[in-house]
Write a protein that binds this DNA or RNA. Structure first.
Lengths: 123, 123
DNA sequence: AAAACATATGAATAATCATTCATATATATT
DNA sequence: AATATATATGAATGATTATTCATATGTTTT
């Protein structure tokens, strides 16, 4: 009995229309892992509070309290988001007595943001 | 009676530590609207399925069915995500009979993705 | 030592959202 | 005309997550 080896997968409820296109694109797709990491990075950028924090830190190092005042949000909310940013290795912190200063830990953030703004303001 | 006009806001449960820093950063912050739009854009990028679709379309125009097969997902799931991408003006479509072809509607997407990959692979 | 302060964090809540399922629409084929 | 195909879409569901609240930790001041 012949095996059905068309490019038709169980999850897809339609037929392949352009098999060559699919195969060519498949070859050029980055690794699953890279695409996952990329989505995770953008997920971090996809929140107004975190965008604001990053933009602020691009201007100057700031302590948690300063950021809370700047964004008019509770210290707790800011601390939680700083943790997310730190886990994504987008910010780092240094302690000075009871004050903790945060700073940007990536030179590309501003560039990525500017690229995004270009898209937004284009149309 | 004196008005308390320190830079202390009701939402923040701590005192300003570096008022000058806060004021300087505040001046340089982009408009609230721009920051919101930026977060919205990155929110769209912050999903593996959408990242994959965009990356695929950067290689070649594809119909909905092709994309479903490529990503091994249902046509419905792909259609829903294509709608999100279209609303974000990241893709456009053209109809050819009963087939609908989607293509990238923005030249910067690939650049933004590459910047993101640089961050990911840096450390 | 006690009080005040800056920050961190766990649990709860509310909101958002990706996918699925069922079905609708539009076009092509028989 | 009837059937098959490609795509779109509304509702439901389950998962994720941003903020709040309460509280813990660590440091400084009195």
């Amino acid at each position: 009995m012949m095996v059905d080896n068309r490019n038709e997968l169980d999850r897809c409820d339609c037929n392949v229309i352009h098999e060559n296109v699919v195969n060519e694109v498949r070859e050029k797709m980055p690794d699953e892992e890279n695409l996952y990491d990329l989505a995770e990075l953008f997920k971090v950028f996809g929140d107004t509070t975190r965008i604001k924090i990053l933009w602020a830190l691009a201007e100057s190092d700031m302590c948690v309290c300063d950021i809370s005042v700047l964004l008019n949000m509770t210290q707790s909310a800011i601390s939680h988001q700083l943790r997310v940013l730190k886990q994504a290795r987008l910010v780092r912190n240094r302690k000075d007595g009871k004050i903790v200063f945060y700073s940007l830990d990536d030179a590309h953030v501003k560039q990525i943001f500017n690229q995004g703004l270009i898209h937004i303001n284009e149309k």
